[in-house]
Amino acid sequence: MNFSIDLFHSFSTLQGIQKIEANLQIPFGEYVSISGISGSGKTTFLRLISGLIPPQNGTICWGEQVWHDTKNKQCIPPQERNIGMVFQDYALFPNMNTLDNILFACKKKIEKKYLQSILDTLGLDNYLTRYPHQLSGGQQQRVAIARALISKPALLLLDEPFSALDETLKKTVQSFIYEMHQQYSMTTLVVSHQISEIKPYAHRFLQFENEKLIDYPYIEKNNFTVQGILISKEKSESEMSQVTLLYEGKIYQSPFPSSELEKLQIGDKIHFGLFL
C-alpha cells in the first residue's frame, strides 16, 4: 500500500507567486526526509497533505482511501485522516498544561504504560503541570512531539522537530521517534534543514528544487553501492546540493553535501545510493 501524492498548488508570497508540484508514491511505513531552501514550500507541502490547505489541483490517496480529489470534488477533513503533526512553532494550547496538551490529542483511552514511556523518554515527567509559557523552547518542542506520538497516528508529519533541542537530547529524541515509527509502522515525513539529522534514519530523500519536489533514489542508510561519473553539479543554498552522475549509460541525480561540493571535479567517480 502506498501514500500517493500528485498535486499542484500555487500561492502568493512577498516574493511573488510560489508554486508547489509533487508526484510521489510513498510506501506505508517509510521514513522520509524533506529538504529544500528556506521558503521553498516545505511547510506548505505538509499543510497540503494534512488537509489544512486544500490543493488547487490533484489527488492525495492514503492507500485506497481518497483524501483529496480535485476533479471529483472529494475531500476528507483533517479530523478523519489520522495524522500526528509537530508544527514548526509547536502550536501548544496556552490554556492547557503539559499533560492536558498531550492528552487532548488522544482519540481513545490510552495505556498508562505507553504514556509513561513517552513522558520518560522525552524527559517531561517533571513538567506535567506547567503551562506552555512556563516551558523553554526545547521543552515545548518535546511536548509537541509527545502530543503528535500519543495517538499512534498512521501518518506522522514533523516540521523541523529537532531545531530547539541540544545535541544529546536531539539524538535521544531522534532515535525515539524512529523507534516509534518502526514499532507502530507510522509513515513519517520529516522536514529538516539539516539532512545529517535524518540521514541515519531516512529511507528516502525528497528535495524541493525549482518549485518541484524531487524524489531521490532509495538510499539504504549510507550504503552507497554504485559508482558514477560526475557530469554536472548544482550548488544550492541548503545543506544538500545536487549532482548529476552517469552510471552504465544512464543519468542519475543525487543529493550531495554542499560543503563538500567544491572538492568535486567534473569526471570524478562518486559513490551514490541507488535502488535498483
Binding site: R47, L52, P78, R81, I83, M85, F87, A91, P94, A105
Partner: peptide, 15 residues
C-alpha cells in the same frame, strides 16, 4: 488566536 492552534486541534480529530 493563532490559526495553528485550531489546525492542531483539527488534526487531533476535534470538530
Amino acid at each position: 488566536i493563532p490559526k495553528q492552534l485550531m489546525e492542531a486541534s483539527y488534526l487531533m480529530g476535534k470538530s
